[in-house]
């Protein structure tokens, strides 16, 4: 009887959590070279190294309705962001790669560079697009520091799972 009762309560709790939107849209493993600095909520994640290289994940809803980004497919958002960053954003596109999330979702990584006050910065942006969400995982910092943290960034990106 007790087993039945506790199982039922667990099921109710799970349904409530999903219904309230608390279930995460992604999973990511924070590399040991970084700390989480902004909590780990359903749609956002921020971590950084001791010397200011930042890693961030954001999940932006897309679809119909007010205050929702209009729906676009993967190619649309990659093209839109690439051009936005290169032109008015002032970023140099250094490389573009096809990538895969830890759970097999196809995505694209855009590797940018930009000088700011004479210092070169590197900025990577990885996109995964599902029917309902746009996953943007970006990372960046001063060039030399970013290069030092690159392994950690790549490990974090390799651990990223697109859940919804």
């Amino acid at each position: 009887m007790n087993y039945f009762k506790s199982g039922f309560l667990g099921l109710v709790l799970a349904v409530l959590l999903m219904g309230s939107g608390c279930a995460s849209f992604y999973e990511i493993e924070t590399p040991q070279e970084m700390i989480e600095v902004d909590g780990h909520d359903a749609r956002t994640y921020v971590a950084m190294t001791h010397d200011g290289v930042v890693l961030r994940a954001r999940v932006i809803p897309q679809g119909e309705g007010r205050n929702v980004t209009p729906q676009g497919n993967h190619d649309f958002w990659v093209s839109a962001i690439r051009e936005r960053m290169r032109t008015t954003g002032g970023y140099a596109l250094l490389e573009e790669k096809e990538v895969e999330s830890a759970n097999g979702w196809k995505g694209t990584r855009l590797e940018f560079g930009r000088d700011h006050q004479g210092a070169p910065y590197q900025y990577w942006m990885t996109l995964f697009v599902t029917e309902d969400n746009i996953h943007i995982v970006d990372a960046g910092g001063r060039k030399a520091r970013f290069e030092s943290a690159q392994d950690a960034v790549e490990r974090a990106l390799a651990s990223y799972e697109v859940l919804r």
Binding site: V46, G52, V54, R84, G89, Y121, I136, D138
Partner: peptide
Amino acid sequence: VLPVAWVNDLGMRSLLQSAGV
């Protein structure tokens, strides 16, 4: 100009600010 605010907010500045840098 894409009518999508977050697209215009991408980049190093937004990233660093999100971490309080």
